[in-house]
Design a protein around this nucleic acid. Structure first.
Lengths: 361, 361
DNA sequence: GTTGGCACTCTTGCCTTACGAGTGCTAATA
DNA sequence: TATTAGCACTCGTAAGGCAAGAGTGCCAAC
């Protein structure tokens, strides 16, 4: 059964109103506000059919209607009006982005905090990284018992480690090690650092004190850490301002899941680019804890095969339009600043694609 | 009016029971459990006096008694039995501490997470730093447009920054800058980096491209950041498992305060050392948001004038003994591992001093 | 000083009732 | 045929009343 234009308008009105008030929406309210010239009785007939079709439901016989996940899905895919952000909001985002963005690693917590502040929902930021290699290897001799390892990665982040030794080393040895590592350990991934390689380096450096393995261990740990997706959740407390989380148990469960670094992107679902925003509504989420929440995700490109995700979690009664818009802008801004992006973040407004699991446009 | 031994026992029984059950404690329950050989009527008389003295209060006429902040204070200062941690708990703490402790900076989030996990309350960790200076300055030449600044601080943490230039620089220039900074910018605090110093360095290096100010800016920002106390809150969601925070508004308010990095140590109150644990009960806290919560704080010494704090926040009905014990152990372990400490963390058990604002032992 | 007994207070849970919001249905209407 | 007005019906919510139970305070006896 196809859905008439009027039904669509009514559905949109129900969702809009419900998002605004968190109260079931009655026929009278729609007749009064939605501006389609018909009486509440007519609306009632239509509402009954929308319930039959699965877009709406009633908490109980004498209550108004509430959107089902399917209703939200329809709303997100076809009905919702794209909220243009106000000039102030757009500027606010850009201002904040410019404020401090150095390394991606420092930034991930900032990104999630920013997303949470802007949307007033809990937000989660994470980065994943394709194969990272070491680009450059330096060892700084501090004194006979101390040196600093400085490693520059293919994604242009720089890691260092201060090493204190129980024994003394001389400067030539450090220099030898530095150049050996710089030639032998650059351009390779973590699993290419084999015991064989370490051994041969150790022999070549004439290292009898196990320095080589200390340095190699650092190299491995750095590459390892870069591979593990870093994630950061913030603003969990904002959940509590949502009426659907007034039940502390419900809130506790979801917050626990989030703080535990729970993944929000279902396995197998991939993000295509910074212009795409994914919306996962209620049961479309795989995690049990998210089954009656919604998640909105944007991805950004941080250059050098580093992808980042920004996700926002809230009740299914979320302000999809505004949040999607904000995340999209944020993601575009990040892509642009962190290397991958090219277009100006303004342009994004006209290209925003919103997708979800059961979308089939 | 002085307080009799029996009153003390009764008070302790009330607090213990209330901590356990979160329900007002009646005279019958005390007569049955506390093991002082007298009837509930006697207990009732004593309870009435304890109410008069301000140690207890009644939610309403026909309810049991609940400790007042003053009652908790007495309990913490004099009455509570020091809970020895079980072997497993002690080992758990040490195991977790050993697991990963590299730089203090990385650690602060781990410390707070750990404290929160161990105590099941939200926890906050922070470090403050007395004057930090630069100990060593290196500039690594990567290519004509790229170099890495590596700065080692007096607290032995190492910071780096990758700089991309729009113009080309030659290696000798970098070397010149490196050694100039290494001699001119080490051993001084942030406010000693004056425009004068920057200018003279610039001239000495023959730098016409503004490199000097880029590098100096990094030096300033590093020293600045080291000065700002880093703080990290985790486990906010654990608040929700406490019955006194079943009211979402109350929980939201406190969690908001915590996530905002709200300070928990009243200004002017200082921590004397890792063996001391401070307890701030309800209204003893200065922050309005903490007025009906309690805070338990331990401090650790991370070497080189760096002090750290671990704080745990909960309802006034907290398990003071267990939490204080755990925090103390954690703080001692951190002190020991991060440089400042000397004694083995086991020894701490016998020296634990618990203090608070109105303590006057 | 301690204890048993008892009347009193106050909360909690439960039931009943009244109200109101919103529906579904029917019959009249354009 | 689609729309509308009208009306009975349903159901959740708030308010009031009642009984049960926990715990106290006090008194008189020990």
């Amino acid at each position: 059964m196809s859905i008439s234009e009027r039904k669509k308008k009514i559905l949109a009105a129900v969702v809009d109103e419900y998002i605004r008030t968190a109260e079931p929406v009655g026929s009278k309210a729609i007749a009064a506000n939605a501006g389609l010239g018909c009486s509440s009785a007519t609306i009632r007939n239509e509402l009954a059919e929308l319930v039959n079709m699965g877009y709406l439901e009633q908490p109980h016989t004498s209550a108004g209607r509430v959107p089902t996940p399917m209703g939200y899905r329809m709303y997100v895919n076809e009905l919702m009006e794209r909220q243009k952000l106000s000039m102030e909001e757009t500027e606010e985002i850009n201002r904040r982005l410019n404020q401090r963005l150095q390394e991606l690693d420092d930034t991930i917590s900032d990104v999630s905090r920013l997303a949470s502040q802007l949307t007033n929902y809990p937000a989660l930021a994470l980065t994943t990284q394709a194969a990272v290699t070491i680009k450059r290897f330096d060892i700084i001799y501090v004194d006979a018992n101390t040196f600093i390892i400085v490693v520059m990665l293919s994604n242009n982040s720089v890691k260092n480690k201060l090493v204190h030794l129980p024994v003394s080393v001389d400067q030539p040895m450090m220099q030898r090690l530095s150049s050996l590592f710089n030639s032998g350990f650059t351009g390779i991934t973590e699993d290419q650092i084999t015991p064989l390689l370490i051994n041969s380096t150790e022999r070549a450096a004439d290292d009898t004190m196990g320095l080589t393995s200390v340095i190699a261990a650092f190299a491995i740990s750095v590459l390892n850490e870069a591979k593990i997706p870093a994630s950061f959740v913030s603003g969990e407390n904002r959940l509590l301002s949502q009426p659907e989380f007034r039940d502390p148990d419900k809130a506790h469960k979801l917050m626990g899941y989030l703080s535990g670094g729970g993944y929000i992107l279902p396995p197998g679902v991939t993000m295509s680019g910074p212009n795409e925003v994914k919306v996962l509504i209620g049961p479309e989420n795989v995690a049990e804890e998210l089954k009656d929440s919604s998640v909105i995700i944007a991805s950004y490109d941080a250059g050098d095969n580093t992808k980042g995700l920004i996700g926002v979690v809230g009740p299914t009664r979320m302000d999809y339009s505004a949040v999607a818009e904000k995340l999209s802008l944020l993601a575009a801004g990040l892509s642009q600043r962190l290397g991958g992006g090219e277009g100006p973040p303004e342009g994004i407004h006209n290209k925003l694609i919103i997708k979800g699991d059961i979308s089939n446009e």
